[in-house]
Amino acid sequence: MKTQSIKVSTVNKEVYKQLRLMISRGEIPPGHKITIRTLAEKFGVSTMPVREAIRRLQAEGFLQIRDRSVVVPNRSLDEVRQIFFIRQQLETLAVEWAYYNFKMQDIERLKMILLEMDAENIPSYDWHLLNRKFHLELYSKAQSTPLLQLIKNVWDTSAAYIHLFQEGGDSFEERQAQHYSMIKLLEEKNAAGLMALLTQHLTDSFNRIKKEMDMLQQT
């Protein structure tokens, strides 16, 4: 009985994790409707763990229930702006707290992640995963579990829009150049410069999304 309970709990967590990941990386785009049965078939499970995952994701703001349908929220430009403002507040706070905890080996780990991101013909999805890894590694030195969890939640809320509207090309090159500048500021022990650059980094990211959303509204 105890073993069965653990197995059910594991399935619930895995379905929740995979569904949240699908939403955050844009596989289920904003405004798209999904059905419980379709998801259950995709994951090879019964509808019960899917219902539980949807309940949790609805509470976290990743899903909405409309007319008995499950929908990924199609956020307005103002909502996306608010999300990025919240990210800015949380992530600059994390950098402020993390700054004095950095050691040379921590900076070397960040450099190794950037080298992976520099790989030729790296798939967009892999680049985004490494980008998230780089930033969370940076913020983890704040040594605050509550703050890091808040950052992850808000990050994942914005991730679908980043995947949809910032795919490759100049966007990757510009962001990567800023990542290397962050490393340099860490090495120079320039906390104010690092926080200012991170603010600009997030502002640029939002502006790219805004440009694409504005163009969509005009079509």
Rank of each mutant, 00 (worst) to 15 (best):
L90V: 03
L197F: 06
F43G: 00
F172K: 10
R55M: 07
F85I: 12
E167T: 04
Y16M: 06
Y100I: 10
R37H: 11
L77E: 15
G26M: 02
M195E: 06
L185W: 05
Q64S: 10
Q58S: 12
G61Q: 02
S181N: 12
L138Y: 01
Q82C: 05
I65R: 15
L136M: 10
W97K: 12
R66H: 08
N190F: 05
P49G: 05
D106S: 06
R25D: 11
P123F: 06
S124A: 15
E96I: 07
Q178V: 04
L186H: 04
S205K: 03
L19H: 01
I107E: 03
M182G: 00
G31P: 11
R75N: 05
G169K: 06
E41I: 04
S140Q: 05
P29T: 03
H32D: 09
F102P: 02
R66S: 02
S46G: 04
S181W: 09
R56Q: 13
L19C: 05
S158Y: 02
R25W: 12
N207Y: 13
R109H: 10
I183P: 10
E52F: 14
R51N: 08
L148Q: 03
R175I: 08
D156W: 08
Q88R: 13
D67L: 07
D170E: 12
I23D: 00
K210M: 08
T199K: 13
M22C: 07
E167D: 14
E60W: 12
A196R: 11
D204R: 11
T203Y: 14
T3F: 09
L93Q: 14
M1P: 09
K42N: 02
L185G: 03
Q217W: 04
Q143V: 15
L90A: 02
R81D: 04
Y180N: 01
L63V: 04
E60Q: 15
N12G: 04
L197R: 05
W97V: 09
R20S: 13
I122R: 13
A196G: 11
G31S: 05
H201G: 00
W155C: 10
S24T: 12
L110R: 01
M112H: 06
S205T: 15
N207R: 11
L194S: 09
A177D: 15
H135G: 05
T10A: 14
Q218E: 15
L197T: 03
A40V: 02
D126P: 00
S5N: 15
T10Q: 13
E14G: 09
R20Y: 03
W155G: 13
L198H: 09
Q217L: 10
Y161P: 07
S76K: 00
A94W: 02
Q218C: 05
G61A: 05
